[in-house]
Design a binder for these strands. Structure first.
Length: 268
DNA sequence: CGGCGGTCCTGCGGGC
DNA sequence: TGCCCGCAGGACCGCC
């Protein structure tokens, strides 16, 4: 699930639930989500420390303490929520952080594809994030276009490559390409200047409301609102949507709205 | 570098 | 009902 808008939502959860508060207790219920740190070490490093700032970079969420930094990644099924410590824990609540008598941050994740890291200092943080491209929410147009122009891969694959641009996932990439009217299989560096510009504009227009909603909204006027319906049609032109595989991911697109076959590419 | 397939992990929904 | 399979909004690794 989690793409940039979701993680932005988790950042808000972290902020409103725990920012400025001292971590009283760390309860690791499943060590399978810990990476490069033991449960005792995580506890010792964080208990008694105050969460000073919540930061998102791409799909990463960072909880700074002034000392060590907790880094969270949500994979496909992770989420962060604020509960009452007395509320029954979900079976997928892997780590609980009690931050007040009545507040507990919970890292919940079904599949455990990613998890939690402990960065002891700034260089540890830098190491964790070293492969991240510019954040999709703050990248400027020039940097975005340069990044696309320097990759020969298919534009969909390039958009979800976190080392090129950080934050977009499978759903957002499909949504943005559909809005921009571009075939997911077009080589990124073959896009024309107007196409690259369109892509950037539509990325911004997609991200803004998605961030507000805290997810990619399954709204009927969005492509995403149709991808899981039985017989999906394009919300704009009603052509049956196509399903294919790009960059190893299920890709949904409209053959009518998203460009002609590239033989004599008139570019629309 | 790019593309592909397998791997990590768990749960679901469909088909037999 | 039970079982097996494919699939899922992520990412990494090795191979060609």
């Amino acid at each position: 699930m989690p793409e940039l808008p979701d993680v932005e939502g988790f950042r808000n959860v972290l902020q409103s639930c725990a920012q400025g508060r001292v971590i009283r207790r760390v309860d690791v219920r499943d060590t399978g989500v810990l990476h490069g740190v033991s449960a005792p070490r995580l506890r010792d490093a964080l208990e008694g420390r105050r969460i000073t700032r919540a930061e998102r970079q791409g799909k990463w969420l960072l909880a700074h303490t002034g000392g060590p930094t907790l880094a969270l990644h949500f994979g496909m099924t992770g989420r962060l929520l604020c509960a009452h410590p007395d509320d029954a824990a979900d079976p997928h609540d892997r780590v609980l952080f009690t931050v007040a008598r009545d507040r507990q941050l919970r890292y919940r994740d079904q599949r455990k594809l990613q998890g939690l890291w402990l960065a002891e200092n700034h260089s540890d943080v830098a190491r964790l994030l070293r492969n991240q491209g510019p954040d999709a929410l703050t990248v400027d147009r020039e940097e975005f276009e340069t990044a696309l122009a320097s990759h020969r891969g298919r534009v969909k694959a390039v958009l979800i490559d976190q080392s090129v641009l950080a934050g977009l996932g499978n759903l957002l990439a499909d949504e943005i390409l559909w809005r921009a009217g571009l075939r997911p299989t077009t080589p990124a560096n073959a896009l024309t200047e107007p196409e690259r510009r369109r892509l950037y504009t539509q990325m911004r227009r997609t991200l803004r409301p998605a961030v507000t909603a805290g997810r990619v909204p399954p709204h009927p006027t969005w492509l995403t609102g149709h991808r899981d319906t039985p017989n999906p049609h394009c919300p704009r032109c009603h052509t049956p949507l196509r399903r294919s595989r790009v960059g190893g991911r299920t890709t949904v697109w409209c053959p009518t709205c998203q460009g002609e076959e590239k033989s004599n590419g008139d570019g629309n």
